[in-house]
């Protein structure tokens, strides 16, 4: 089963490799990972999408918590979080395909951010399933290049991660 975990970490030298070593050294899988500083000084937030049963997830959670640089681990697998991903998509766009692509972009509320006579570059955001869906529709029209950020996630409701 797929799980999305947010990890609040010290914005320190080597933190990313500690987390990565933890996953690789124990045979845990990382499907996507994104990291950036937060609004709190000195802290960064990682969003990790991983796979495993409940027992593996519990181990991942505990092992992450054990790292000295990790302040908090949030597991959004129970639907308590909102997930978004951004993708930049380059598609070939000639003749009839140009109109079809624009329709797809419109349906998914995506944006054209670069255009040439032979191509469009599209910016799409949404939960990862939505990104998968737009890619499926664009694939037969000529996908040339796809860049995905990986998920970022935030808890639902009024509270921040630390209250």
């Amino acid at each position: 089963m797929q799980h999305t975990i947010s990890v609040i970490v010290e914005n320190d030298f080597g933190v990313l490799s500690r987390v990565a070593t933890l996953f690789s050294g124990r045979g845990f899988n990382i499907e996507s990972l994104s990291v950036a500083p937060t609004n709190e000084e000195g802290l960064s937030r990682m969003t990790i999408v991983t796979r495993g049963d409940a027992q593996i997830l519990e181990q991942i959670n505990k092992q992450l918590n054990k790292l000295i640089d990790v302040l908090k681990v949030l597991d959004f697998s129970d639907g308590s979080g909102i997930e978004r991903e951004l993708a930049l998509i380059k598609v070939s766009a000639e003749d009839d395909a140009r109109a079809e692509i624009l329709r797809v972009v419109d349906i998914f509320r995506a944006k054209i951010i670069d255009v040439t006579p032979k191509s469009y570059t599209i910016e799409a955001t949404g939960n990862p399933l939505k990104i998968d869906a737009i890619l499926e529709l664009l694939r037969p029209l000529g996908l040339k290049e796809v860049v995905r950020t990986g998920s970022v996630a935030i808890g639902r409701g009024a509270k921040g991660w630390n209250g």
């Binding site: 030298f13 080597g14 490799s17 500690r18 070593t21 050294g25 000295i68």
Partner: peptide, 14 residues
């Protein structure tokens, strides 16, 4: 050495 010992230390500092 921090990289080499990362999996076998509780923590490390430079």
């Amino acid at each position: 050495i921090i990289g080499i010992t990362r999996p076998c230390t509780k923590h490390s500092f430079l």
